[in-house]
Simulated assay, not measured.
Amino acid sequence: MNTKIREAPMYDILFSYIQQFNSVPITADEKERYRAAFSPFKLRRKQYFLQEGNRCHSFAFIIKGAMRQFTIDEKGAEHIVRLGIENWWMGDRESYVMNTPSVYNIDAWENTEMLLLSRQHALDLSTIPSFSYMLHRLDEKNNMANQRRITAAISASAEKRYREFAACYPDLLDRFPQHIIASYLGFTKDTLSRLKNKHVKE
C-alpha cells in the first residue's frame, strides 16, 4: 500500500482541526508545509511516549487513541496530571520549550496513532497565520482550563469537581477507568464511585 495514501486521513484530521480555529481556508501550500513538519507515529497500549528524566523533543497531536501524563511519588503512587484523546495535544511543554529533563511520564492508555511536531518544526510553522492563530487560541483555552482546575483544587468539594469534570469532559469518563479519573481529580477511587453512582441516580 502506498504510504502517502495510508497516511492521508491523518493529515486530513489535522487540517480540519486547525481549520476550526480559523475563518480563512488553509491553502494548499500551507497543507504541504504541515505535512512536511508533522510525522506519523504509533504507540502500543502502555508504551511510553516520554519518561521522567528524558527531554520532550516533540509534541503529539492525537489522531486515534488515548494517553495520560503523570508523576510517580516516592511511594510509587501515580498522580495523573493530564489526559488526552482524539484531537488533543500531549507533551511536557516546559521540557519541550526549555529543552530540560521532564518530571513527567507520558504513556498510551490505548493503542494510539499521532502526529509528532518537533520544537524546530513548530518554530518554522509559526510564520503561518493559521498555525499562529491556533496556538494563540489554544493558549487562551489552556490558561482558562488551568485556572479553573487550580480554583477547584483549592476550594471546590469533591462532588463539585466531579460534576464539572463530567460536564466538561464526558468522553474522558468513557475512555479511562475510575482509578485514573479519581487520580486526575485528586480523590480516591471509592469516592469517585460514590459520586458517579449518585450522579447516575439523579
Rank of each mutant, 00 (worst) to 15 (best):
M10V: 00
F38T: 01
Y48E: 13
I13A: 14
V24I: 15
D29R: 05
F41V: 06
Y17S: 06
P25G: 01
R6M: 09
R44P: 04
Y17I: 07
S16Q: 13
M10N: 06
M1G: 13
Y48I: 08
Q47D: 13
K4N: 09
T27D: 12
N22Q: 12
F15N: 01
Y34K: 03
M10K: 12
F49E: 02
Q19N: 09
I5H: 14
N2M: 13
Y48C: 05
A36R: 10
L14K: 02
R35H: 11
L50R: 03
I18T: 03
L50I: 05
D29P: 01
R6D: 06
A28K: 15
K46E: 06
I13W: 04
L43Y: 09
I5N: 14
R6E: 11
P40R: 02
K46M: 05
R35C: 07
A37F: 06
I18F: 02
R45F: 01
Q47C: 08
L14M: 03
L14R: 02
Q19T: 03
E32S: 05
L14D: 02
S39C: 10
Q19S: 09
S16Y: 07
F21G: 08
Y34H: 10
P40K: 02
I26F: 02
F15V: 07
D29K: 08
R45G: 08
Q20L: 13
R44M: 13
F15E: 02
I26E: 01
P9K: 13
F49W: 10
I26S: 02
E30R: 03
D12Q: 12
Y17Q: 12
S23T: 15
E7A: 09
M10W: 10
L50S: 05
Y11D: 02
A37G: 01
I18S: 04
D12N: 14
R44Y: 07
K46T: 08
N22D: 06
Y17D: 08
Y34A: 02
E7Q: 12
S23D: 15
R33M: 12
I13C: 12
V24D: 15
F15D: 00
I5Y: 14
Q20K: 15
D12L: 08
K46C: 00
N22C: 08
P40S: 01
Y11Q: 04
K42H: 12
R33Q: 11
A36N: 14
A36V: 03
F21A: 04
Q47N: 14
E32T: 04
M10H: 12
S39R: 09
R6S: 11
D12H: 09
Y48S: 14
R33L: 09
F41T: 04
Q20E: 13
A36K: 15
Q20N: 15
T3K: 15
I18A: 05
A28D: 14
A37V: 01
K46H: 03
I18W: 00
Q20G: 14
M1C: 10
K46S: 08
L14I: 00
E7L: 11
I5K: 10
E32R: 10
K4G: 03
P9E: 07
Q19V: 06
F49K: 06
P40W: 00
K31A: 00
S16M: 07
S23R: 15
A36D: 11
